[in-house]
């Protein structure tokens, strides 16, 4: 069951990533990137790396998208123009290359990892509670997480809040 979900998630990650590369609209790009990050968080969670999933979700799916979106919203208004025929052709022509590159990378990853997708139990973590892991073993990361959230708060405050006033 888990494996099926994992495979579906991984497939969607690839599709979303390709879509991200192909979209012309910056906003769509940002959204699909967020989708990639969110799906990745799911995969991580399913594979047992809970704290990594948490981090991925908060940082990549959340904050990075926010910053992306803010940058896009602040810049795109001034430079929005319709795409002409040639640009479109160029963009579509890029698709095969992206697919080939993706395929090659996947092959490399599969070849290197042997594609073990079932969750691996980490021997060092056996017998430790979630609390132990988070508070005693990864406290540096917890501290980092706190600061990341702080940074995100400031980013939103600085890049969005004041734009309303302006």
């Amino acid at each position: 069951m888990n494996e099926t979900i994992l495979l579906i998630c991984l497939a969607f990650i690839v599709i979303a990533a390709i879509a991200c590369a192909m979209f012309r609209s910056m906003l769509k790009c940002a959204v699909s990137l967020a989708v990639v990050s969110a799906l990745l968080a799911c995969v991580l969670y399913l594979m047992g790396a809970t704290w990594a999933a948490l981090f991925e979700l908060s940082v990549c799916a959340g904050l990075v998208t926010v910053v992306f979106a803010s940058a896009i919203s602040l810049t795109s208004t001034s430079r929005h123009q319709p795409e002409n025929e040639e640009e479109h052709r160029k963009r579509v022509a890029g698709l095969p290359f992206i697919l080939i590159a993706t395929g090659m990378m996947l092959m490399v990853v599969i070849a290197a990892t042997g594609f073990h997708i079932e969750p691996q139990a980490n021997a060092a973590l056996v017998g430790l509670s979630f609390k132990d892991v988070l508070w005693n073993m990864r406290q540096a990361d917890v501290l980092g997480q706190i600061i990341v959230i702080l940074a995100g708060a400031f980013a939103v405050a600085i890049l969005f809040k004041e734009s309303d006033k302006a």
Partner: peptide, 24 residues
């Protein structure tokens, strides 16, 4: 720890993005 390193790299990165775009 390499993962902690990555976390703090991201913090540095985010703060830098905001600082560069400070004046919007």
């Amino acid at each position: 720890d390499l993962f902690s390193l990555y976390v703090f790299l991201e913090i540095t990165g985010i703060a830098s993005f905001v600082l560069i775009a400070l004046h919007r």
